[in-house]
């Protein structure tokens, strides 16, 4: 479904990704693990078109999308939950959802999807007229997820759902994502919390200073000595 082929990416002169290749098949739940600064968010940004790779190709459902502007990718079926939530602070909850569904041309579908989001997160409905910046961190995370689901994505890209959330909220969010996955959405999850990520994902990539060093099923990664020492805590 989504292929990254030998991607190199730079910020100015410093190289953040070296020859990164990923292959995500439709219906999978895949995770990328790596230390701070390994380049996980950069991979997500390359997929979304927010960072342009210097070399390599990105293919989505057989289409070469490497040079496509970011705003055209939303319509291809990507749902993006960025690192640090990044809800629009001075827009209301409902306006945030509307921007999430910006590419929906049919107003009826837009209204229906907003209602779906409210069914999934009743808290957002209560606060629909509230500015996003006045909401709690957990509520903002719900909004970021709901916003990503607005265009009915086929592929959900989630960058660190656990950041700044209580453990119970993390479990809650991951359970929700698992449910979405079971309903047929393909998921790529970047996570600091390797234990939890491997519990939910089927397969994982290990990223070290911009290079993929390992790729395996979650059950194998959990048993891998190196992985256990580096990411799972002994």
């Amino acid at each position: 479904m989504l292929k990254l082929i030998e991607i190199d990416a730079f910020y100015g002169k410093s190289q953040a990704l070296h020859n990164v290749s990923l292959d995500i098949r439709a219906g999978e739940f895949v995770t990328i693990l790596g230390a701070n600064g390994a380049g996980k968010s950069t991979i997500m940004k390359c997929i979304m078109g927010l960072v342009e790779p210097k070399a390599g190709r990105i293919e989505y459902e057989g289409l070469d999308i490497t040079r496509r502007p970011a705003w055209e990718r939303a319509a291809l079926g990507f749902g993006y939950v960025p690192e640090g939530r990044r809800v629009f602070p001075d827009l209301t909850v409902e306006e945030n959802l509307k921007i999430g569904g910006y590419k929906l041309t049919d107003t009826k579908v837009l209204v229906r999807n907003i209602e779906k989001a409210y069914d999934m997160f009743p808290r957002l409905k209560e606060r629909r007229r509230q500015l996003a910046k006045t909401m709690s961190g957990g509520e903002q995370q719900m909004l970021a997820i709901a916003r990503a689901l607005m265009p009915e994505p086929k592929l959900l890209l989630i960058d660190e759902i656990s950041m700044g959330l209580m453990p119970i909220m993390v479990n809650h969010s991951l359970a929700l994502i698992k449910k979405l996955h079971e309903e047929g959405i393909t998921v790529l999850l970047v996570e600091q919390n390797a234990n939890k990520a491997l519990k939910f994902a089927q397969r994982g990539y290990i990223l070290k200073t911009g290079r993929i060093t390992l790729e395996d099923t979650s059950s194998n990664l959990i048993c891998n000595k190196e992985v256990v020492e580096a990411y799972l805590g002994a």
Binding site: L50, W71, E72, R73, A74, P82, F88, D90, Y102
Partner: peptide, 25 residues
């Protein structure tokens, strides 16, 4: 209007507005 909403979103976070499908150009 929709274009007005897009303008406000872009002013607050250009990168994310792009990712949501707002044609910045």
């Amino acid at each position: 209007t929709k274009i007005g909403l897009a303008w406000r979103a872009t002013a607050q976070d250009l990168e994310i507005a792009k990712a949501m499908g707002v044609n910045i150009n």
